[in-house]
Every structure is written in C-alpha cells, then in structure tokens.
Amino acid sequence: MSAGAVHSIETKNLNLWYGDFQALRNVNFRVRRGEITALIGPSGCGKTTLLRCFNRINERYGYVRTSGEIKILGQNIYAPDVSLIELRKTVGMVFQRPNPLPISVYENIVFGLRIHSPLFKWRKSVLDDIVEKALRDVFLWDELKDRLHVRATTLQLDQQQKLCIARLLPLKPEIILMDEPCSALDSEATLAVEELMLTLAGRYTVVIVTHNMAQARRVSHECAFMLMGELIEHTRTEDLFLTPKDPRTADYIEGRYG
C-alpha cells in the first residue's frame, strides 16, 4: 500500500446491484487523505451502500454484485490476494446506532486485538495502555477511567458512540467510515462527536454519511451529493453549498426534496 498518496479511496466506474436493483451507477469518487468527506443525499440514494463498499462489508448482507474498481490506499480491494481481515482493520466503521458489544468497556476496546491474535498472551500492562490511549483519543478517559469494567451497553448513548470509535483505534485504521453517527444522539452529544471527528481528521481519513446538511457543512472538508445511485457532484464543502454546479444539487440543498 503506497504511502503519501493524495487519495485514500478511489473508485472507478463502480456499479452495484442488490439482486436486480441497481444501487450504485458508475460512481467515480475520490477521497482525500486525512480529510473529512461528507456524503449527502436523500434516503435510498446509495450513500450507505457506497460507504459499505469501502471495507466490503456489504458482502455479508446477502446478494450483492459489483463491477468496477475500488482502491484503498492505492490497493485494489477486489484483487484476489486482498485479505478481508486486513482490509477491515484498515477501514473501520461506525454505525447509526451505537453498537458496543454487551461486554465491558475495557473488553470492547481490546476485542479486535484479541480476535486477531487469539493465541498471543497480551500483557495486562500493554492492554491497559492501549485502552487508556484509545479512550483519551476520544475524550472518554476522564469520564470512564473508573468504570472500565461496567457493561458498555449501560453507558449513555454518546459515550457508547465514542466508545465505538475508540474500539477501532487499537487496530490502527487508516480510514474511518461513519454511517450517520449522530442520528441517534441529541444536539449536545452531536456537537461533542463532531468535535471529536475534527480532531480525528489528519490522523485518519474520515468519510461520513449524513442526512443533516448543517452537519455536513460544519464538519466536512469535501462534500459529495448523491442521487438515485449516482454521484452528482463532489467538491470542497463551501463550494458545494455556495455555488453548486448541478441544478439537482442546488434543489436538494435548498430543500426542494429529500
């Protein structure tokens, strides 16, 4: 995987079908490394589908056919020698509803490590450091340092969502995909998660799907508008919102549909 490239994700003529239904049409999409890119568009336009392509997780959801090419960090992820495990470690995902596993906060964070080296005896001090670092990175350490062994599903929703982000970090991902990460949170918690996203940018490439245009404006560097499985327009966020080139983008931004 080539380092230093400008784009972390590149798709070429990407098409995707669920059975007979074509969900993505000729998508050519490039995501700049270290930036936050927002995907906006009305429901059912293929935003989430596109997001799920990037770590090939949509293959677990049943019949999916794709054509075209996706390159993550310069590597074609449909090449036969690609390891899905490595791919999913490199490209982590955060969901609409926080989904911590019903185990302790601590175990949630080290879960990935344990999965990937089941025979390796992790030293407790090493794991402790990993947990502390991950929680500090998502600003949860001060709140949770005395509650590392409570069940993660008993936390507040915004804490759960941050924990879901923290859970990815020990695997040293390059890209973090977020599928409407704030739609289950109240406005205050949303702001906190947005702030967190801004601090993650730079170290990680972030792609976020959102229904909330104000949010896309607040957090993203680039923004892409999708409609009926097509990528209509993709440019710097301020340009997309101030001077959209495509009339369909303009209509959507002005709230004529969606």
Binding site: R88, F95, N99, L101, P102, I115
Partner: peptide, 23 residues
C-alpha cells in the same frame, strides 16, 4: 441476537466463525 452485534464484530475484521464463537 441483534444484528448490530454482528456488524460490530465484522467491522473489526472478525471472520464469520469468530463472530459466532465470540458474540
């Protein structure tokens, strides 16, 4: 068992069997 648990597991790179076994 909620689908979300499986998704959480898949997305840290667990195989289907690991997901079944651990979650």
């Amino acid at each position: 068992v909620p689908m979300a648990f499986r998704e959480a597991c898949w997305n840290v790179g667990a195989t289907r069997w690991q997901t079944i076994r651990h979650v």
